[in-house]
Nucleic acid binder design. Structure first.
Length: 781
DNA sequence: CTTCAGGAGAGTCATATGTT
DNA sequence: AACATATGACTCTCCTGAAG
């Protein structure tokens, strides 16, 4: 029975992914109808859809509403969806993909008119194999990019290539500082081990280090006791999502948000669209990398790689997201720590909501790392939080006390944050006038955004008369952080520029949303948000008379009208309109809109000719992806990514044993390299205190935050995508002990259980699901 | 705008499962 | 047992969000 339970948990984890956003949604009133399960869980029925069962044609009407998003669905060979229209409507991306294959399906007129090139989409076989290995290095400029990367990741690279293709070699120079910083100490696994040995002052080589790699077994060991200590500090990372009504009221009063000319978030949208099912992509859960935590929850304490691959394996145990967390925490201070500690020591607590306050251990860990480059993403934080539920048992009472204290402190201090503080930059920031200015001072520092720059707004009279640009640069970072923290708890992890922009552009909007009880969210855009964006764009087009979204969002493509369009955008406060009703920073909304309406996006697979063209154009224009994208009628993002994957001296097909071993070693090295010397020393010293304690590597470190570019450079014969896939496969095999998860009847039962649980969750959007909790809950069944 | 990591979709193949 | 079908794994491709 226990075994079944474990396996079940493993199985379900396959369908689950982490909830990315840190926001907490209000209670969802509507219950999805059971019969719409396919809409709710397209991943579960995907395969069925592929079968030749029914041929119900998909209605087109809804596609017309979201033509560019619905395109994908056309690719589907069949559509036996119970409620096709809702699916199409709610899974626009899915819809679009399906269309790519369904050549006989009539194309939505409006879309095709706008995107005629999309109509010709058809299924493409992947017969094209990469060019022969020989001579590629010399023929293809991209190799020099790789070479550059390799150099930076301390992997020998053909140096001459860079000389041959200087135009592309610059790319590699953008490598993150963290790599440079850490690489000095941990150039590769060998040097790492050396460094580790020197760090460790005692004699117990294998077990004395907090982070130790057993070269014989490949198991990475971490002292358990130390991990527990680390948990204390990790608790500080809990995202706090405001639901403080009194706070909101106070804030609303203070900011006089109702006076702001911001269009209110339409709550009814939430409800009306409650039946929205996530777009297929949103709901489709990763088969492999998802929810390792859940998997791990029932795994034995040790994981060893399959024999054939066990050059090195990693010992996993579900208790240790802390390394990642502490790493992240240390990076936070890069920008602000000094300010917080020095200039405004009393504001330290408020600067660390979410339980950071007073955690000595955490401070100790973070203190010395102020110069280290941030390497963890916010996503990791929430993931760590999710996994922390697994780790509760590890938390000693001390840690819990810390947590409680932290939360209390946070609660007390957040109010302070909202208050107008008698600090220099504060009074103006807290005034309602200031607020209004914030809302309207929507100048941009980007070229793209420059179209919207700070011209005075004759229509709304929002814009302050003093230059917002100068204000942006002058704004007290500390003040901005404190104010934004209320809405984005981990705001100080962002770059100073990002914070200033957000302060300038979004603070007012955030306050508006908060006043309405809507949390600021991140992560994948929901179907509803996509719809809202479309709506906002259409409304703005109607308002200004601009002819198309392409002209609005890609003004540069229309040089003759650029000036006119730009003026219209300024005059009508484009930023406010585009972000209307979407509780996110303005910028992501804008970029999302650009992607959605980019006529060069969603162009399907590259055929051989496309690939050739891409290579040829790249040889001519280097990394001018915008230019190349225009030449091949694809987005710059698409061509850049594609180019990183094609060509080169890369193997295909089955991985050899040697390759697999190289991969494992490379991943190990990259993971270790990512840890700072301070972090390693800290772990090491803790382990010395209790050499017998032992815990595995942080689970998340095994699949998140890995620099696959570095891994690619080390593996050499495979590109980063191949490496990533293979590594996921290795972990999956290991975690399932090489066996199958449920199949047949058991698999069906598992799915039914999953569906039931999802149904019970009663959520609007896959983004709202805590997959970790769900996996755990299902595993208990 | 660019880069990166995460993630989803789709084609193909191997194998488990069901049917005769 | 032979065959047909269903299912899952693997791999590759492309898209997305985040961040600087």
């Amino acid at each position: 029975m226990e075994g079944d339970s474990s396996r079940f948990k493993i199985h379900t984890a396959v369908f689950c992914k982490k909830k990315k956003q840190s926001s907490v949604s209000e209670k969802r009133p509507q219950i999805p109808a059971p019969e719409s399960l396919e809409n709710e869980h397209p991943n579960l029925v995907k395969r069925k859809k592929r079968r030749k069962e029914s041929q119900t044609p998909a209605p087109e009407s809804l596609e017309n509403e979201h033509p560019h998003l619905a395109k994908r669905k056309k690719r589907g060979k069949e559509s036996q969806t119970p409620a096709p229209e809702s699916l199409e409507n709610e899974h626009p991306h899915l819809a679009k993909k399906k269309r790519r294959k369904e050549s006989q399906t009539p194309a939505p007129e409006s879309l095709e008119n706008e995107h005629p090139h999309l109509a010709k989409r058809k299924k493409r076989r992947k017969e094209s194999q990469p060019p022969s290995p020989e001579s590629l290095e010399s023929e293809q400029p991209w190799v020099s990019k790789l070479g550059k990367r390799r150099k930076e990741s301390q992997t020998p690279a053909p140096e001459s290539l860079e000389n041959e293709h200087p135009q592309v070699s610059k790319l590699g120079k953008r490598r993150k500082e963290s790599q440079q910083l850490t690489s000095s100490l941990l150039e590769n696994s060998e040097t790492f081990h050396k460094a580790k040995k020197t760090t460790s002052t005692h004699k117990k080589k294998k077990r004395s280090s907090v982070w130790e790699v057993d070269m014989e077994t490949g198991i990475i060991l971490v002292n358990k006791e130390n991990m527990e200590n680390l948990l204390e500090s990790s608790r500080k990372d809990v995202d706090i999502v405001y639901v403080d009504v009194s706070q909101e009221q106070k804030l609303a009063k203070m900011d006089k948000a109702e006076e702001l000319p911001i269009v209110r978030f339409q709550k009814h949208d939430h409800q009306e669209l409650h039946s929205d099912v996530q777009s297929k992509k949103n709901r489709k859960h990763p088969k492999k990398a998802a929810s390792w935590d859940a998997v791990q929850g029932n795994q034995p304490e040790s994981i060893t790689l399959p024999h054939s691959e066990s050059l090195s394996s990693v010992d996993l145990e579900g208790k240790s997201t802390e390394l990642a967390v502490s790493h992240k925490k240390t990076s936070k201070e890069k920008v602000f720590r000094n300010q917080e500690l020095g200039a405004t020591p009393e504001s330290l607590d408020s600067a660390h909501p979410g339980g950071e306050v007073g955690t000595e251990a955490g401070e100790r860990v973070r203190g010395p790392h102020s110069t280290r480059k941030k390497s963890k993403k916010r996503k990791d934080a929430s993931a760590a939080i999710a996994t922390s539920s697994d780790n509760v048992a590890l938390l000693d009472s001390n840690a819990e006390n810390v947590s409680v204290d932290s939360l209390e402190s946070t609660g007390a201090l957040r109010e302070e944050d909202v208050d107008c503080r008698p600090r220099k930059a504060e009074p103006q920031a807290c005034s309602s006038e200031k607020h209004a200015e914030e809302m309207q001072g929507l100048e941009s520092t980007h070229e793209e955004e420059s179209n919207l720059e700070s011209a005075s707004n004759s229509e709304t009279r929002y814009v302050s008369e003093d230059g917002r640009d100068s204000e942006e640069s002058d704004v007290d970072l500390d003040s901005a952080v404190r104010q934004l923290q209320e809405f984005i708890p981990d705001i100080q992890e962002r770059a100073a520029t990002t914070i200033r922009r957000m302060y300038r552009d979004d603070l007012g909007r955030f306050k508006e949303f908060k006043a309405q009880g809507v949390a600021i969210r991140f992560g994948k855009f929901s179907a509803k948000e996509n719809e809202q964006i479309e709506k906002n764009v259409q409304e703005f087009l109607s308002l200004t008379g601009i002819e198309s979204a392409d002209k609005l969002l890609y003004t540069d493509r229309y040089p003759e009208e650029k000036s006119l369009i730009t003026n219209l955008k300024r005059k009508h406060a484009f930023r406010l309109h585009i972000g209307k009703g979407i509780a996110r920073p303005w910028k992501p909304v804008y970029y999302r809109a650009k992607k959605m309406f980019d006529v060069n996006n969603y162009k399907g697979r590259y055929n051989e000719e496309d690939t050739k063209k891409l290579k040829a154009y790249h040889s001519l224009h280097g990394n001018d992806w915008k230019k190349i994208g225009a030449m091949v009628a694809r987005s710059s993002l698409s061509v850049a990514l594609k180019y990183s994957q094609i060509g080169g001296d890369r193997n295909h097909g089955a991985w050899s044993k040697t390759e697999t071993q190289r991969l494992i070693k490379a991943v190990e090295d990259v993971i270790l390299k990512k840890m700072s010397p301070e972090e390693l020393r800290e772990l090491d010293s803790r382990l010395q205190e209790d050499p017998t304690g032992r815990l595995s590597v942080v689970r998340e470190k095994l699949y998140k935050g890995i620099s696959w570019v570095e891994v690619e450079a080390r593996v050499e014969t495979r590109n980063w995508m191949q490496c990533k896939s293979k590594w996921t496969e290795i972990l999956t095999k290991r975690m399932t002990h090489g066996g199958f998860v449920y199949r047949g009847v058991k698999a069906l039962q598992a799915k039914i259980t999953l569906i039931k649980r999802l149904y019970e969750l009663n959520v609007n959007d896959a983004n709202e699901i805590d997959w970790e909790d769900l996996a755990s809950a299902i595993g208990d069944h």
